[in-house]
Nucleic acid binder design. Structure first.
Length: 860
RNA sequence: GGGCGCGUAGCUCAGCGGGAGAGCUCUCGCCUUACAAGCGAGCGGUCGCAGGUUCGAUCCCUGCCGCGCCCA
């Protein structure tokens, strides 16, 4: 496991730049970001990786941030977690394949472009070659062609991505910036289209005309994974249907859908309605005869226990319509308004008043009409109830019947669902309980994955349809783009065997108008990043990847869909590990997000506390655990970084250098220190192997503070000398510094690199991860413990006497357990110097170690 | 309503079968020749509540209460 690292250089102190007079954290980011770029410190050595066994490579499937979005400290924390792992693996000698991507396709980018430039896409407009967007976004959005719109998307995302890269470099992410990908790039489009064609060929993808959840603002279909329930006020309207033996009352929150009513439904066990099953009733106002049917999903406790089934008011309607094979009477159009003509069988009279209305105003009118006809009983009863929304939308979803593309995901196939659950069990989840999120989601799927979107900036489906003599498309046998031609844009490219002038004319062809949802492309991030389409040799080496880091909110989307795609194409999971980070939350424990207005801009925090301080805080958030944003903690991190600088300077000033080795360490106290440090190295290594970077940092940090406060204080007088005892201390300080800098390097990349540069050559980030074997064995760490305890007792005496730590001690009597007397004696000289003790005696006694201190007369 | 996680010092958290801990805050003190953006010392908790298992429970089991997230 030593492939990608350089051997430690032995250079004398000062040869690599020397120790500055007054070390400072300020400016370290600029200095080292530039140097790492120049030196290509984090380059992935493709040739060397391919030549080595697979386990010498560590491949990370980094989340591509939404380029049109904004980053907050939550992102910084999460990406830092990944970077800590990457840096650790690199120091372990692995070839770290750590690309970065930008998720720049899809709706968020469209929205940003619309707002930024004040434009909107109108696909019917022709391309305007010289188009330039207005300087300032006007009040009314200027309609532009699809191609102009896409060009603006690309222009703006390029700017956004450059900003993102700058920030990530400042955060110190050790990604190989030569390996950046974009989800809208030509390669990504080709990959997404090729994978889609494979899915289609194997029957994993299909198109279907079906009731679809539809956002009327964005005028696109949305998938189950993008839904959220929101509590909204509504009202039950009690409406009378004319039954064979008098009126039948239903209660509905959507009386405006009365013209779409196709049946009434009650629970089969509901005695109240059993006599009605098999009969028909007549809708009020419209006089349409509809059957009364029984279905287990009808809730006897809800409203009057009998409901009207409309096409379509909610997902239950869809289920009933499908399972009971009811007719379709759709009234809501793509724009969310009532369509111009009534459904078949519904009289034109009352319907004409609704045509063109929104649901809201249609409801008002229907209620008036029902009141007039006497079919509305009493006043509407206000309630609040969950209503389905697109997570990015502001208006309730409607259900519209449209033709859409789907990928099978187990939502309607128990065997497939089982197979995908099994895939989930192949992944090592960090923390383990996050696997439940995956399993809950898969088990709760109720339909296949809808991947088509009626949008513009996305990967188009590589599909055309033949037009018959009437100009009607033949959806049954689509024309597929040949794989060799990918990526294609069917709206401008012409299918084989046709000419451009046949587009849209009878006997000609028609492009599939839709683009893929962004998840349909980002679910291929392992394939895109690893070169499935561009570098098969690399792909074969790094796939399945080692790590998928991401936050827990997108297990149902990104993680799951990536598993689905890899399951189909490769018959395996896309990565061995999924490390799930928590959120940074505000003091009220609310998730930080721009829309909530509680997001903290990262650059400000990075500048005020320094990157290392922010990273230190990030490392304190365990995998999966949310953590509150608290600036006080940043100060603690900054103090640690500062301490590393100062102790580094001091230790090197005492004579620590790379010329000294483990063999020079002869004094018992020094060996005690290094033996303890060996234990720390083992523990930190074990923790990092388990992705527990928090624990690794904790053990290193605890050791470090005791190193500074106790060990360095104990030995500094001795180290000033030049005899063998002095050399022993200097060697121990050098080894301890070297090891500790490397232990901290993944978390504090800037300050460790700075101190490393004072006395070593090469980057600490290419130095080997410390091993216990570098350190001398056989020391008794208890020597350090008892010496520190004794020193602490002496400090306490001085502190209680309100004396300076420099105050002289006339005499000190250490009383220690019998077995520890010899250990205290081993540190006698260091102890007397550190405590400024004139006369030290050590005696055996009962109980824990204590020291009786007599301070010297400060005036004497 | 279901799933998952969490309730330990004022705050943020570690510990998870035999000593209740860390950092921050707070208080007191110290110019100490690496660091005053520092250092030293100290105050501070019936480990959510109630049962159970055990010689012994913060830790294991059950129930309850509260908080958060995900899903209905």
């Amino acid at each position: 496991m030593v492939a990608d690292i350089s051997a430690p250089d032995s250079a004398g102190p000062g040869t690599a730049g020397g120790v500055p007079e007054k070390p400072s954290l300020d400016g370290l980011e600029d200095k080292w970001v530039a140097r790492w770029a120049t030196d290509d410190t984090y380059a992935f050595d493709r040739a060397a990786a391919l030549a080595a066994p697979r386990d010498h490579t560590y491949a990370i499937d980094t989340p591509p941030p939404t380029a049109s979005g904004s980053l907050h400290v939550g992102h910084v924390f999460s990406y830092t977690h990944t970077d800590i792992v990457a840096r650790y693996q690199r120091m372990r000698g692995r070839h770290v394949f750590y690309p970065m991507g930008w998720d720049d396709n899809g709706l968020p980018t469209e929205r940003r472009v619309q707002n930024y430039y004040g434009v909107r896409c109108d696909p019917s407009l022709p391309y305007d070659q010289g188009f330039e967007p207005p300087e300032k976004a006007g009040k009314d959005q200027q309609p532009i062609s699809r191609r102009n719109f896409v060009e603006l998307c690309e222009r703006l995302t390029a700017v956004d991505e450059a900003e993102f890269e700058k920030l990530w470099r400042r955060v110190g992410l050790s990604v190989d910036w030569a390996g950046v990908y974009r989800t809208i790039s030509e390669t990504s489009r080709a990959t997404a289209q090729r994978m889609f064609l494979h899915n289609l060929a194997r029957g994993e993808a299909y198109a279907q005309e079906a009731p679809t959840l539809w956002d009327v603002t964005f005028r696109t279909a949305v998938a189950q994974a993008e839904l959220e329930d929101r509590e909204r006020p509504g009202a039950y309207h009690r409406v009378a249907f004319a039954g064979p033996a008098g009126p039948v009352h239903i209660e509905t929150t959507r009386p405006e859908l009365l013209p779409a009513c196709v049946a009434l439904v009650a629970h089969p066990d509901d005695a109240r309605y059993q006599p009605l099953f098999g009969t028909t009733v007549t809708t009020p106002l419209f006089g349409v005869e509809v059957p009364v049917v029984a279905h287990r999903l009808a809730e006897p406790d809800k409203g009057s226990g009998i409901a009207m089934i409309c096409t379509f008011g909610d997902l239950n309607d869809v289920t009933w319509w499908r399972e009971l094979q009811l007719p379709t009477r759709a009234v809501i159009g793509w724009d969310g308004r009532f369509v111009a003509d009534p459904p078949p069988g519904v009289p034109a009279g009352p319907y004409a008043e609704l045509a063109g209305k929104t649901s809201f105003s249609a409801q008002q009118r229907i209620v008036e009409l029902l009141r007039e006809s006497g079919d509305l009983e009493g006043d509407p009863r206000p309630i609040t109830h969950p209503v389905k929304f697109f997570e990015k939308g502001e208006r309730p979803l409607e259900i519209v019947t449209t033709r859409q593309w789907y990928i099978r995901n187990g939502g309607r196939d128990a065997d497939l669902r089982e197979a995908l659950l099994a895939r989930g069990r192949e992944i090592q989840w960090v923390p383990d309980h996050m696997r439940h999120r995956y399993e809950n989601w898969v088990e709760g799927l109720n339909g296949d994955w809808l991947i088509s979107r009626q949008r513009f900036f996305g990967v188009p489906f590589p599909v055309w349809y033949r037009l018959d003599g009437e100009g009607e498309p033949d959806y049954g046998s689509p024309i597929l783009a040949p794989e060799s031609a990918l990526p294609v844009d069917p709206s401008s490219d012409v299918p084989e065997g046709y000419t451009a002038d046949q587009r849209g004319v009878p006997g000609g062809f028609l492009a599939d108008p839709d683009v893929m949802d962004t998840w349909a492309t980002s679910s291929l991030s392992p394939q895109v990043a690893s070169g499935w389409d561009t570098d098969p040799e690399l792909f074969a080496h790094v796939f399945p990847m080692d790590l998928r880091p991401q936050a827990h909110d997108i297990i149902r989307t990104w993680l799951f869909s990536t598993v689905v795609r890899a399951h189909y194409e490769h018959g395996q999971v896309p990565w061995s590990h999924a490390a799930i980070s928590g959120f940074v939350v505000d003091p009220d424990r609310k998730k930080m997000s721009k829309s909530k207005g509680n997001a903290t801009t990262p650059i400000d925090v990075l500048e005020r506390y320094g990157t290392d301080a922010v990273r230190w805080r990030a490392a304190g958030a365990r995998p999966g655990a949310d953590s509150p944003f608290d600036e006080a903690q940043m100060k603690v991190g900054r103090r640690l970084a500062m301490k590393v600088l100062n102790v580094g300077k001091f230790v090197l000033g005492l004579g620590a250098s790379t010329a000294l080795t483990a063999a020079d360490v002869t004094e018992p106290l020094d060996r005690a220190l290094l033996t303890r440090l060996a234990g720390v190295v083992d523990e930190a290594t074990a923790a990092l192997e388990a992705y527990n970077y928090t624990r690794a940092l904790e053990v290193a940090e605890t050791f470090f503070w005791s190193f500074c406060d106790d060990y360095v204080e104990l030995v500094k007088t001795r180290a000033y000398g030049s005899d063998a005892a002095a050399v022993s201390a200097q060697a121990a300080l050098a080894l301890a510094l070297s090891v500790q800098l490397r232990l901290f390097a993944p978390v504090l990349p800037f300050v460790t690199e700075e101190v490393w540069s004072w006395w070593q050559t090469g980057s600490v980030h290419r130095a080997p991860w410390p091993a216990a074997g570098e350190l001398p064995v056989g020391g008794d760490p208890v020597i350090l413990t008892v010496a520190a305890e004794a020193l602490s007792a002496i400090r306490k005496a001085k502190s209680e006497a309100k004396q300076s730590m420099r105050a002289d001690v006339a005499s000190a009597v250490v009383t220690a357990p019998e077995a520890h007397v010899v250990l205290v004696e081993a540190a006698r000289t260091d102890l007397t110097h550190a405590g400024r003790i004139a006369e030290l005696s050590v005696v055996a006694g009962d109980g824990p170690l204590r020291v009786d201190v007599v301070l010297a007369d400060p005036t004497g």
